[in-house]
């Protein structure tokens, strides 16, 4: 099986690679279109800001390649947000794989922003959560979130209930960092790698 981690200007993804190493899963870390399109599984990670990462994806043409992929694709954190329609972060139009707009956690909610730490996810409706205990804790660090929508397959609650995970066709996404979310997070990555292509 060939797994590709998409390389773009989205910060440090070292821990994602280490997580795959721990699972004994080989991968390529590349921005090469031929490698990406021929992969069995594609991971689209991300730590960073929406407008700079999105403009990089446009410049490289990845913004057209990713939505056209047919194999299972897994976006995490900012990767997930870039798969949505729009982000309030610097008013950025994103790839529109999930028809939902990403909102900032309101400053007047009395909640600290970013939402940082371990929070539980509920209402699982995705094979990626197979073998995960109910109400499992995942590690989140983000200031923007996708509200609950028709593609929501796991929910978390901070200033408002938001999409912890999204799923549409071959596209999967998680707002939290599976790679540092303990054994439950590791199980989600393993479940993704075990999906039938």
């Amino acid at each position: 099986m060939k797994t590709v981690i998409i390389k773009y200007n989205a910060g440090n993804v070292q821990s994602v690679m280490y997580a795959l190493d721990r699972l004994g899963a080989g991968y390529l870390y590349t921005d090469d279109v031929a490698e990406i399109t021929s992969a069995d599984k594609v991971i689209f990670p991300g730590v960073g800001e929406a407008s700079t990462t999105m403009s990089y994806l446009r410049k490289t043409g990845l913004d057209k390649i990713i939505p056209a992929l047919k194999q299972p694709v897994f976006g995490t954190c900012v990767g997930m947000q870039l798969m949505c329609r729009h982000s309030e972060e610097n008013n950025t139009d994103c790839m529109g794989i999930f028809d939902v707009d990403v909102k900032r956690f309101p400053a007047d909610s009395g909640m600290k922003v970013p939402h940082m730490g371990w929070n539980n996810i509920i209402d699982y409706k995705t094979p990626l959560t197979d073998n995960i205990p109910q109400s499992a804790f995942m590690y989140f660090v983000h200031s923007y979130a996708a509200p609950v929508c028709e593609y929501t397959v796991a929910t978390c609650d901070y200033a408002f209930p938001f999409s912890a995970m999204l799923h549409r066709d071959n596209f999967y996404a998680a707002q939290f960092h599976c790679e540092i979310s303990g054994n439950a997070g590791q199980q989600i990555i393993e479940n993704f790698l075990n999906l039938k292509s």
Partner: peptide, 8 residues
Amino acid sequence: VAQTINIP
């Protein structure tokens, strides 16, 4: 450490 542990 990063290779070994799966928490932040």
